[in-house]
Design a protein around this nucleic acid. Structure first.
Lengths: 227, 227
DNA sequence: AGAACAGTTCGGCCGCGGCCGAAGTGTCGC
DNA sequence: GCGACACTTCGGCCGCGGCCGAACTGTTCT
């Protein structure tokens, strides 16, 4: 019976998500960030030891990948396709009633513009990345050009200080609503906080979605040609 | 914490599939058929009482719908989208290695032409249905016209005998690779066996996929204008 | 009416798996 | 070096849930 194993595989995969704590981990990881084990433990409200065991299972199941770095264990979703699958599942998982407009528009808002850890993702994130590339500020391999560094300075950034940390100045971060890379790294984080400080974008409620304000639309158009 | 409930919903949905027996049920139901409780119990190798409990859970979870008929409880997937979701899951659930070409072509073969219980589904199934409709053999509401009955007789069928059973002669059966209905019922089953007897189609290995032979191509073109 | 059959409910058994705290390993910073 | 910290391993507790057989309801067939 070959089909038996198919059912078993399905059960095993589903079993990984069938636990409150592991599901909480996965939902958290949907933001695309790499989380540490302790952060996830706190998010789900369980002991570190418990979280460690769950992460080992998720890893063995291939849902997440890890990156050991010093005494930290960073974990993130293994593959954009896993993120897609999780989002499909959660969209079916909602309460049977009220499948309606709210969820859809909420998802649309997230796809439109959201934060990914500390920088901008979604359609807005890739639009910014495209704008930077078109203007010759960012090279194809996600490195800032001299012109790009100057542009950052005009916004009030100090490239040397941004580069002082371990963190790379610019980094490609994969986005699965767009299936393309957007700008992460120290520069991505700077732009996100700067845009917020200027009142160009506003967080929607407590979610990860953000909204571009009226002045924001004008500024982004002037700066990067984003309509 | 609103996001908590989201994780809980995900865990609840996954929990439905996280059991060997329920997963076996769902994989079986992927053929689109409505199964009785006993059939499913036999398929999974559990007692009828156990199957009954599982079906109640799947029903409550909205994964399946039931149709009570006499002393039978027919169960089938609630929605083509559920079938889609299950297929997505099983494609991720396979062994980590060998994700390659084989699976893809296998799925393509299934989408192309397959059996759905005892009749034909997939692209071939809907092509046959279209051919019957275009030639005026089948009405829009899936009933055979006088011409259609005569056509069945020319193939060697006995419409009166086919109608003798409880089973409807023609029945619409929803197909989720095509997202349209194809011909089920006694006539659908007759055509499937007849095509096989004539050597027009051949089962691929032990799977549900079928392949149209060379003579089959010619015959189907002559009979129903299927290229 | 009686027998056969499909499905359901209930009680009880059993094992799996999630949880924690305590103790242990490796890393970083002073 | 020492303490602080991130994480892991282990032992033990506990409850949930899957499983069955037995008894029951309701339908169909003769």
């Amino acid at each position: 019976m070959i089909r038996m194993t198919q059912a078993e595989d399905l059960a095993r995969l589903a079993g990984l998500l069938a636990d409150r704590t592991r599901a909480t981990f996965c939902v958290a990881l949907l933001d695309g960030r790499a989380w540490t084990a302790n952060e996830l433990a706190a998010e789900a409200g369980v002991a570190a030891s418990t979280a460690s065991e769950h992460l080992t299972k998720l890893l063995a199941g291939g849902l997440v990948v890890e990156r050991r770095q010093g005494r930290h264990r960073y974990v993130q979703l293994a593959d954009p396709r896993i993120g897609q699958l999780l989002e499909d599942l959660t969209s079916h998982a909602g309460p049977p009633k009220a499948i309606g407009l709210k969820q859809v528009t909420r998802n649309k808002a997230l796809a439109q513009a959201r934060t990914c850890y500390d920088h901008l993702a979604g359609r807005l994130g890739v639009a910014i990345t495209d704008g930077l590339t078109e203007r010759g500020f960012l090279s194809q391999d996600f490195a800032f050009t001299p012109n790009g560094l100057h542009w950052l300075e005009t916004l009030g950034a100090d490239p040397d200080r941004l580069r002082g940390t371990r963190r790379p100045l610019a980094k490609a971060c994969l986005d699965w609503t767009e299936r393309r890379s957007h700008l992460g790294g120290a520069a991505g984080a700077f732009l996100c906080t700067h845009f917020q400080d200027q009142g160009w974008i506003k967080r929607v409620g407590t979610s990860r979605a953000v909204r571009v304000t009226e002045p924001g639309h004008r500024a982004l158009n002037d700066l990067l040609g984003i309509a």
